[in-house]
Amino acid sequence: MARYGMALDYKSCINCKACEVACKEENGILMGADKHRIWVGNGEIEGQYPLLDITSNAFYPSQCQHCDEAPCEEVCPTHATYYTEDGIVRVDPEKCILCSYCMNACPYDARYVDDRTVTVDKCTFCADTRLARGETTTACQNTCPTKVRIFGDLDDPNSEISEVLRTREHFSLKANLGTKPKLFYLT
């Protein structure tokens, strides 16, 4: 048993989208820009050429936060959304009725519809591919050129992620909502 989480050195992200393709290839994700488990958020630049605000153009790599208190799980009428014993939030395609309550409940917009399985899908921390094979990295973490992600067991005090979270400042997204995300943004 583990409690998986991810720390993101998001300031190193160059918005190259290697993580997105790695995720799609590993997990057989549908094509289409709205069909992805992982994305990089960034806003349009502020200012007028050539006086532009560099910081307004920051890149925010993101995916499902694997909330400890997941609103998506709370609202799911069929309990299709569940917590695995490793703390991963997953969806059971057998039980999903596509009511899309979870999509609306998720404050992070992490979910989308997989048209093949007719299920709401999202990041699984590669649970049924890489982790199922005993691998210890996720596809998005492993491939990243600037090594943005550290994936690991939050319950293991000796894991690299625990160490990093002890020693470096970090923040969670929308922390005020009490969802207790397991994605940590390192500053």
Partner: peptide, 10 residues
């Protein structure tokens, strides 16, 4: 720090 990162925004 508060950052808005959403799929739709993306």
């Amino acid at each position: 720090m508060e950052v808005e990162i959403s799929r739709r925004k993306f």
